[in-house]
Write a protein that binds this DNA or RNA. Structure first.
Lengths: 194, 194, 194, 194
DNA sequence: CATGAATGAGCATTCATTCAT
DNA sequence: AATGAATGAATGCTCATTCAT
C-alpha cells in the first residue's frame, strides 16, 4: 500500500526538522564558519546528498535556522503576555532574558554573530527587524500601562539593557555578576521604583 | 649602496600601516571570514607574499588589527577624563558613544563580531576584558562622585545601555531613532534627574 | 536507488589503489619533495579534492606508499624461505636483490631516499627497522645453518654488500657491472667457498 | 689606496667559502629541501641579495656544496696512500670510514640523500662517478698488491660493505653495533685472513 | 659591494555542490 | 528517496629570485 500524501509530507517535515536541529546544534557548538555541510549531515545521520534534497544550499539552510531562532525569541516574549500585572511582566522579561543567557548562551552567541557578520546578516535582517519591532512595541505597551512617561524611549532603554548585559556576559563569561545584576534590575523595575 | 637602517625602518612602518588599514577596511566591509588574504593584499596594492613579510599569519594580522581598535576604544574613554564635572563626563561618554556608532559603525560591527566568533574571540579576549574593566571602573567612579547608590551596578547598566543601543543601531541601521535616544539619555543622566 | 555498501567499498578500494600506484610512480620518477599532490592527481586522472577523500594529507599518502614498499620488501625475503638448502637460500637472496635493482630501481631509489630524508624518515622508521631486523635475523639463521662462525656479523656484512651494491648501481646506473658482480657473489657465497 | 686585484680576489674567496660552509651546515642539520636560501643567508650573516652575488641560484650553490663534499671524500682516500703496507691501507680505509660515520654522520646523510634524490642527483652525477671510479681503482690496486684474485670484484665488494654499513648505521643509528663490526672487518681484512 | 623589501608562481588543503547509481 | 564519490575553485601560506637604493 503506497503511503498517503499526508504521511509522505509528515516524513519530509520530520526529516527537515531533524536537519534544522542538527544544524543549530553544530552551528552553536562550533560557530557558523567552522561548520561544514558535512558536519551537519553527520550530526543528522544522513548523507550530504539528502541534505541538499531539503535545502538548496548552505545559505538556504542557514536562513531557515535563523528563522527557527527568531521564532523562539518571539515565543519568549509571548510567554510574558500571560501575565496580567505589567510589573510582573517586566520581572518575567528580565528573568527570561537572564535564563536564556545561562542556558542557551551558545544560541545567543550564534544569534548575535549571525546578525553581526555581513554574510549572514543579509540573510535575515528584514524579518528580524520587524520581529524586534514587535518586541519593542509590546514592551512599550507595558511601560504605558504602568504609566511611565516616554514609554517608547524607556522601552528601548530596557531592551538595550538586556541586550547589552547579554553582550557583556558573552564577553566576560562566568566573571560577570549575573545574579547580582538580575536582582538589581528586578528591584529597579519594580512597582516601588518606577 | 644599501639603504640605511633608518630608511628601512621607515619603509617597513609605512608598509605595515598600509596593510593594517587595508585589512581593517576590508574586514569591516566583508567580515572576517569572508575576507581573504588576497582581498587585503589587493586593497593594499601589494603582493600576498609581502603581507607575510609583515604579519606571520592571518591570525597575527587580525590580532594586530584588533589591537588598533582597542587602542581607539581606550582613547575614546580617555578623552572623557579631561572633564572635571562628573555629569559632564557622563554626557561626554554618551556623545562619544553615539558619535562612534555614526562614524565608525563598520568598525563597531567588526569589533563586536570579533568578540562573538569563537575563532576570533580567542585572539583578543584577555586584553579586551581588562580594557573593559578599566572602562567600567572609571564609569563607577563617576557615579560614585555623583553620589549615586549602587554605583557599581549603575555603571554596568549605563555601559549595557550604550552597548545595547549600539547593537540595535547595527541591526536597524538608519531606522533607529539615534538622535532622539541620545537626547533622551543625556537628559536621563543629567544633574536634574540623578 | 543508492549503491550498496559493497559497491561503495569496491569503488573506494579501486580508487585507493589507483591513487597509491600513481603516487608511487610519480614519487619514484621525481622524488618525494618534487612531487606535488597535483602531480599525483593528474597521474591518477582524478581531482585533487578526491585524493583527500582517500588520504588525509600528503604525509598520510606517503606513509601508505611506504607501507606498500615495505610489504613488497618482506615478500621478497619471504620467498627465500621456501628453499630448504641454506646455500640455495643465499643464492636466491642474491638473485632477488639483483632482480629488484634491475626491475624496480626507481622504487629502491625512492625507498632509500625516504629513509635518508629527515622529513620522510620519521614516517616509517620504526616499522622499517623491525622489518630490517627480521631480515637480518633470517640471514643470520642461514649462516648458522651453514655452520659459519660469527654468523651475526657475516649476516650483517652480507646485507651490507647487497645494499651497498644497490647504492652503487643507483649511482652508476648501466655502467655498473651488475651481472659480473652477481655471478661473483653467487660463487663467493656458494657451498664450495664458505 | 685601492685594494689590489689580489686582495679583492681573496676577499671574494673568503666570502664564498663562508657561504659554502654555512650552506653545508644548514643542509646537514635540516635537510636539503627544508633549507631555504634565507636560512643560509642568516647562518652566513649576510643578506640574501649578497648570496646571489656569489651563486646564481640555489641549484648553483647546491652544486658547489656537493663539490666540496666530493673533495673531502677524495681526501679521505688519499690519506690512505701514505701507508706503504697494503694491509695497513685496508685497515686505515675501514677506520676512516667508520670515523666518518661517527663524526660526520649528518654530512653522510646529506651526501647520500643528494645522490638519491632525482633533483639533486642530476647536479653531480658525472663528477661523482669518476671520483668513485678513482676510489675503486685505488682499492683494486691495494687488493692486487696483496695478491688477491679477482681484485676488481673484491674491491667493489669491499666498497659496497663500507657503504652498505654506512647506510645501515644511518638507518639504525645508535643501535647498530658499529664497534663490533669495525673490529670484525679489520680482522677479516687482515693479513692473517686474506 | 650590500641590503632587505617586494614579487609571483606554486603548494597542501578545504568544502559547497553535483551526480551516477 | 538516498548515497557518498567526485569536482574544482578558493584559501592561507612559502620561497627562490629580483631590484631600487
Amino acid at each position: 500500500m503506497p503511503r498517503t500524501e499526508k504521511q509522505f509530507q509528515e516524513m519530509r517535515e520530520r526529516s527537515r526538522q531533524n536537519i534544522l536541529n542538527s544544524a543549530l546544534k553544530v552551528f552553536a557548538a562550533k560557530g557558523y564558519q567552522e561548520t561544514s555541510i558535512s558536519d551537519i549531515a553527520i550530526e543528522a545521520s544522513i548523507s550530504k546528498g539528502l541534505l541538499y534534497n531539503y535545502f538548496s544550499s548552505k545559505e538556504d539552510l542557514t536562513r531557515s535556522v535563523m528563522e527557527m531562532l527568531l521564532i523562539e525569541l518571539e515565543n519568549m516574549t509571548r510567554n510574558v503576555e500571560s501575565e496580567k500585572d505589567p510589573y510582573k511582566k517586566l520581572r518575567k522579561l528580565i528573568e527570561e532574558a537572564f535564563d536564556a543567557m545561562e542556558t542557551n548562551s551558545d544560541y545567543w552567541r550564534l544569534y548575535s554573530s549571525f546578525i553581526l557578520q555581513p554574510e549572514t546578516a543579509k540573510l535575515i535582517s528584514p524579518e528580524f527587524i520587524s520581529s524586534l519591532e514587535r518586541i519593542f512595541n509590546s514592551m512599550e505597551k507595558i511601560f504605558s500601562e504602568i504609566g511611565v512617561k516616554n514609554a517608547k524611549e524607556e522601552a528601548k532603554i530596557f531592551g538595550a539593557i538586556l541586550d547589552g548585559i547579554a553582550f557583556h556576559v558573552m564577553l566576560e563569561g562566568e566573571s560577570y555578576p549575573r545574579n547580582k545584576m538580575k536582582k538589581y534590575l528586578i528591584k529597579k523595575y519594580s512597582k516601588k521604583n518606577l
